[in-house]
């Protein structure tokens, strides 16, 4: 999927610095200052966004370690004991999340792109290789089926851009990604 924040941020910063900022009224100090802060914030986001996941995972790793240490050394009365029990349980939950969060987002995107490339090459081969002729109908069907599902998600992703003629015909992105419960 090509509509990604890294590309968007890069172009927004360029538009702000090369087109918008030079056109902001020099006499309007608040507008000048806020425009500069907007650019600074965008630069920070562009630099840090690729590291956001690693930062959060690193933080969870260290907090889980800390929680386990804390649960091991802390003791006290019933209220303290209850909280220590809860902290130990949350640390176990943290370990579970860490176990499931081993791959970096960049690795995930790279793998998606590699699969896209090789799948595309297989399509090319099937339609160029006479020996592959018997499977062409099946390949045709698989590509169209995958594309229908994938493109539904991509169209829902960019729905706010306003290109759809009938936006109500699209399912929500949450329902398509199965994230409604998680985000709700």
């Amino acid at each position: 999927m090509m509509v990604r924040p890294d590309t968007q941020l890069r172009t927004i910063i360029r538009a702000m610095t090369e087109v918008v900022l030079p056109a902001v009224d020099p006499a309007n100090q608040m507008a000048q200052e806020q425009a500069q802060v907007v650019v600074g914030t965008l630069l920070l986001m562009a630099e840090r966004l690729p590291l956001q996941f690693q930062f959060d995972r690193d933080e969870l790793q260290r907090l889980t370690d800390f929680a386990e240490q804390l649960a091991g050394v802390a003791s006290g009365g019933p209220r303290t004991s209850d909280l220590i029990t809860r902290l130990a349980a949350d640390a176990r939950a943290g370990r579970d999340v860490l176990e499931r969060a081993k791959a970096d987002p960049a690795e995930l995107v790279d793998t998606v792109r590699q699969l896209r490339a090789v799948a595309g090459a297989v399509v090319d081969t099937v339609f160029a290789d006479a020996a592959a002729a018997p499977c062409r109908d099946a390949v045709w069907h698989e590509v169209l089926t995958m594309s229908r599902d994938q493109l539904l998600r991509e169209r829902a992703w960019v729905l706010p851009q306003g290109f759809e003629q009938d936006p109500s015909s699209l399912p929500s992105l949450d329902s398509l990604l199965g994230t409604a419960a998680a985000t709700g």
Partner: peptide
């Protein structure tokens, strides 16, 4: 292209 789209391969063929 920054990433391949198998549907584009299919359409080209």
């Amino acid at each position: 292209c920054g990433e391949e789209v198998p549907l584009m391969n299919l359409a080209a063929h």
